[in-house]
Design a protein around this nucleic acid. Structure first.
Lengths: 232, 232
DNA sequence: CCAACCAGGATTGTCGACACTTTTTAGTGC
DNA sequence: GCACTAAAAAGTGTCGACAATCCTGGTTGG
């Protein structure tokens, strides 16, 4: 339950200019929820949080409102807010939505590809390969490497709505599940090859193939998780 | 600019129980934006709106916060909020996201179909057919009928995240474009046949086909719009 | 004439206090 | 001991006021 308690007042405001107190509260709370410092399903007390962050309840409520529309907390009128509960079903639903959206993102990335995008994707893949050779085995398909990959492809889709929906909304829920259920998948080598083939399809401008490969990639991950869930 | 000015204090609270003032403000403003009573791209003055709705700025700000995360307004720190601007690009982006998500919804609806869902879909289609025969021609593919159809299928997907994303978020943007650009498509008969085939695929439990047909259906509509846009 | 600068006014961000609702707790009767 | 009631405590919803910031128009200097 112990939180960071320190709002990075100066940090992170390079890009967007100054940010409000409510913004910082929002970012800080989002981090705490995603990384499990606020337990999933636990109740949220506005006065207590306001004291802890040394802010007024009004500003805090603004932050909570935004967490609500991110789907990270649930609010009920006159009752209060709780951190959203994690469930097997919720995780599987997330995979289905990602399959649809990231498949489309991958198709668009292939259709609108630019030299810069491809160069960056290839470079990232090379980095991952190096890393994989070093820590042969289970290391690659980790939050970091895998996430970078998916994140980058979505960015290359050139569809603002898609980028916003995935990168600014859904991915926080994904991260929350990863952190808290500790998804260390044993699909390291296979996942790397799949990533490689996806980039090839994008480079070739083959949107249809790129989408199919991305969907398979995500579906395979989903099956893997589903199997693990059913056996516990 | 003249608004409804009357918050339905009693209405709509049957399902969720009592709703807060901020809730009602949110619903009312959302309606005004979607239906164009607040012009797209226009600036929003918090004090003015608060006076108009006879509410405090705090409650109003809560409503604005939620409109922001719906993507219906855009806020900038210390500057204020504007109703989101409509653009050709934004409309086309919306279609791509819908194609991905509704395609998936359609697949899931086929895979998890229930007798109740199918009965309701068939019944709705029959209603639309009747309506089409009456007003032969351009009447069917109208906001109402078409929207009901897509809405119902998404509901049948049995994926809470998908339902929430489409029905409680994206569709308001869709409605906004429909209202304000007045999309009266001449695809009446064809669209109806497409709907019919989609339902058949769902009824047959053929998720793959159902998804393909839905994606084609949406993509055809997108092409239609794209053509119209480029010729103006 | 144009650019930079500087009030004045208006708008946004933040706060503390009050009203109402829900939950908890203490008490009473059976 | 248990169920029901009622008071009190805690929590949420709403409001009005103050402080910080931004936009507007006019002014000054080059």
């Amino acid at each position: 339950m112990a939180s960071t308690d320190q709002l990075t007042k100066a940090g992170e405001q390079a890009l967007t200019g100054t940010q409000s107190l409510a913004d910082r509260l929002f970012l800080s709370l989002r981090k705490d929820i995603v990384e499990g410092r606020m337990a999933a399903g636990s109740k949220i007390s506005e006065p207590e949080l306001a004291r802890r962050f040394d802010a007024s309840r009004g500003s805090l409520r603004e932050a909570l409102m935004r967490l609500d529309s991110l789907g990270l907390i649930e609010r009920r009128v006159n009752v209060g807010a709780r951190v959203v509960a994690l469930s097997d079903r919720g995780l599987l639903e997330l995979y289905d939505v990602r399959e649809a959206l990231e498949g489309m993102a991958c198709r668009l990335a292939a259709e609108n590809r630019t030299d810069a995008d491809i160069a960056e994707l290839r470079q990232m893949l090379a980095r991952h390969e190096q890393q994989e050779e070093l820590q042969a085995g289970t290391a690659y398909y980790q939050p970091e490497g895998d996430f970078d990959f998916h994140f980058r492809i979505v960015q290359a889709s050139n569809n603002e709505l898609l980028i916003d929906t995935l990168c600014n909304k859904l991915y926080y829920r994904v991260r929350m599940y990863r952190y808290q259920l500790g998804m260390a998948s044993p699909r390291a080598h296979r996942a790397f090859r799949e990533h490689s083939h996806i980039i090839e399809a994008i480079e070739a401008g083959d949107g249809e193939l790129a989408e199919i490969l991305m969907r398979r990639h995500i579906r395979a991950s989903r099956s893997n998780i589903a199997k693990k869930l059913s056996s516990s």
